[in-house]
Nucleic acid binder design. Structure first.
Length: 316
DNA sequence: CGCCTTTGACCCGCGC
DNA sequence: GCGCGGGTCAAAGGCG
């Protein structure tokens, strides 16, 4: 397979698996080659200013291609709606997630409070819940009218042979479910760090089994263990691992401030590296993935000062 | 022994 | 109300 750097971006959709099974803009995304490119997109500006930025790159020997994704504007709801860019395509299937992501702010707050409460309850359960009837309920009942709160989600699609990609954090698998219309199960992971409520779902695209869809929910409240272990945190692995724990601007500043005049880089490629959610080909003045790759190579001297060599993937 | 995965059961939200 | 699918729990077992 011709391995070239690929950056995909995704519509605002809660369940990425639907990308391959549902209609996109009224058209069945049955053609795997077009299932991504036919998606309604954000523009470059949206990615820089709107969506959450979980800059992940999986450095894994089994990772063939690295894909960047964005699922929801999530907790940064105001970014999406406030920007007024209206990244959502009206007739796309992303409306539900947009509600989740940036819809009713009141509800969002409400949900968040509920989630926090649930987490607290869970903590308390371990301590003083001896008198609780454990034999009956697996989960605690909620008060009426309260809905389960969802953290903002960000998904990544990675071409990989392994399901669980190393991202610098430690995860404990807590569930696995068969996915409807897919032969591949979906795995549920939770960050093992105490007090960190980040979860991730890992599933394989049934349209393209070589693609692993990883959906992150929540934000880490800590640095990645990999970062702590390695003083030189700007390794490829740590770069990617730390990214989710850092705010976009902070990350951009830390990574590129010495080189860039502003946090939003004027170099599309660097922007893409800092923000893999950017789908380069969609940017009018941006290079194609191949061009980007070539640019990466040609700019290596410059980039190596910023990006570790191993982070800049090259064709085998 | 601690950490992790596996797995069946259960809960919840939603559409019909 | 019911059924379905997604998400979570927790016991059991595996592994280093």
């Amino acid at each position: 397979m011709g391995e070239k750097a690929e950056l995909y971006r995704f519509p605002l959709h809660e369940d990425l698996s639907l990308l391959f099974s549902q209609k996109s803009n009224g058209r069945l995304a049955s053609d795997r080659d077009t299932s991504v490119t036919d998606m309604p997109y954000f523009n470059y500006t949206d990615y820089l200013h709107g969506s959450i930025d979980y800059g992940f790159s999986f450095q894994n020997s089994d990772v063939k291609n690295e894909l960047a994704v964005d699922v929801t504007g999530g907790g940064h709801s105001n970014n999406l709606s406030g920007a007024g860019t209206g990244p959502l395509t009206p007739n796309s299937s992303i409306s539900s997630s947009s509600c989740e992501a940036n819809g009713d702010e009141e509800q969002g707050r409400y949900k968040k409070a509920d989630k926090m409460k649930l987490e607290e309850d869970r903590e308390e359960d371990k301590g003083d819940d001896e008198d609780c009837d454990k034999s009956k309920k697996v989960q605690k009942p909620r008060k009426k009218g309260e809905k389960r709160q969802r953290e903002p989600r960000v998904a990544f699609m990675t071409k990989s042979e392994v399901d669980h990609l190393e991202d610098g954090y430690r995860w404990r698998k807590y569930g696995q479910k068969a996915v409807k219309n897919s032969p591949y199960p979906r795995s549920y992971y939770r960050c093992t760090t105490p007090k960190c409520t980040v979860k991730k779902r890992v599933e394989r695209s049934y349209q393209d089994p070589s693609i692993v869809i990883t959906t992150y929910e929540g934000q880490h409240t800590h640095q990645s263990p990999a970062t702590l272990r390695n003083s030189n945190w700007m390794t490829a692995r740590n770069f990617s691992a730390v990214a989710p724990a850092l705010g976009r601007d902070l990350m951009m500043q830390q990574l590129f401030h010495p080189m860039m005049g502003s946090s939003t880089t004027s170099h599309p490629l660097l922007g893409a590296i800092a923000n893999p959610n950017i789908y380069l080909p969609s940017v009018s003045a941006a290079p194609s993935p191949l061009q980007a790759h070539q640019l990466l190579n040609s700019d290596h001297g410059l980039l190596q000062d910023i990006i570790p060599g191993q982070f800049i993937k090259t064709n085998p």
